[in-house]
Design a protein around this nucleic acid. Structure first.
Lengths: 182, 182
DNA sequence: CACTGTACTACACAAATGTATAGTGAGAAT
DNA sequence: ATTCTCACTATACATTTGTGTAGTACAGTG
């Protein structure tokens, strides 16, 4: 929670909120922070000031997600992976899960065999997003594509064919980050 | 910044702030968040939701490494990045540094513009490794290649030319991990 | 069927908060 | 000596925001 001008004034024993406001204004002019004018507690530290590396988020690694939403199948968890919260900026509080990429069907998007993908179960998947999907009972990582009002899974590798669902297509998460050991 | 009840109501298209307030109250009762009563934007996620991690390694982010070994130029540090120690398995005690990839000269190796690369200053660079190098005074990320007993930097993108050193080629680190926000 | 709880709407109001105007005193600059 | 800027105080006021009361629509229950 960012402080209010009264909280700042109180902390520094200023007897006027204007003193605090002036300081914040000066810091904004110098580029150390950003103000959301009008909004309460609308002070945000600039990325350069934000002390990264402090807070990390631990994401469960899931081997296979046979059905349902990932968090229902947490028993398939095979470990955890921790990353800086700034990497997952904005989605740190979402239900996240990690999985290891198998195969090279997504090399067109720079996702290779053996990479780790962190997916967000709470994000709304959009067309062209890389998604973790359950298609006709099989689990896979593909790009979500739309053709004639029907969603299908696009393979980002000319060597393979796209996956068009016969029965059902369930999006279990949207890829948000990628980690690779080189 | 935590949202206000009006922002929550607006987001979910509630026409009353009370609906939002009721939901927040319910979530508090269930233990998912804590309220600082009276304070504006006084909603905080519970620690159990935040899930801070176990063993992580914090790596300094270096903007530019003009010369010398990276750790000598730590003043160019622009932040830190933390990752699970298992990702950097075996090299956690090495001198590591992170940098943001500029340009698309390494797309052939699945390294894209904007990616984060974690490099190891202590690893012995081998042929074909992706390295952070200082070539004729310029800093770059390329593949280390050998031709007729002379090292040069190979670009993994057919649109660009390889970099052959005129004067000097200093390897500052070997790429060991890659992090991408999708 | 009436009853109950859920999930809201509509409205109100006090408190919290951002922001502005005017003024003061110390010290530096001219 | 006068002016000017800096760093604040004092005060005011319009918004923003948290919170409460009352009421509606509706699904489910006995």
């Amino acid at each position: 929670m960012a402080p209010t001008y009264r909280e700042i004034a109180n902390h520094f024993r200023f007897k006027s909120t204007k003193a605090a406001a002036d300081h914040v204004l000066a810091l904004e002019k110098k580029g150390y922070l950003r103000r959301h004018t009008g909004r309460s507690r609308g002070i945000e530290l600039t990325a350069s000031v934000k002390r990264t590396g402090q807070e990390t988020i631990t994401v469960p690694i899931i081997g296979d997600i046979p059905a349902g939403t990932p968090e229902q199948k947490i028993e398939f968890q095979s470990g955890t992976i921790s990353v800086d919260s700034t990497i997952l900026d904005g989605i740190g509080h979402h239900r996240l899960f990690a999985l290891k990429v198998k195969g090279d069907s997504m090399i067109g998007r720079g996702i290779y065999d053996g990479d780790w993908v962190i997916a967000d179960a709470d994000a709304t998947p959009n067309e062209n997003d890389v998604v973790v999907a359950l298609i006709d009972g099989e689990n896979t990582l593909k790009a979500l594509a739309l053709k004639e009002n029907n969603f299908y899974l696009r393979v980002e590798n000319p060597d393979y064919n796209d996956w068009v669902p016969v029965n059902e297509l369930i999006i279990q998460g949207t890829a948000k980050a990628l980690i690779r050991r080189i």
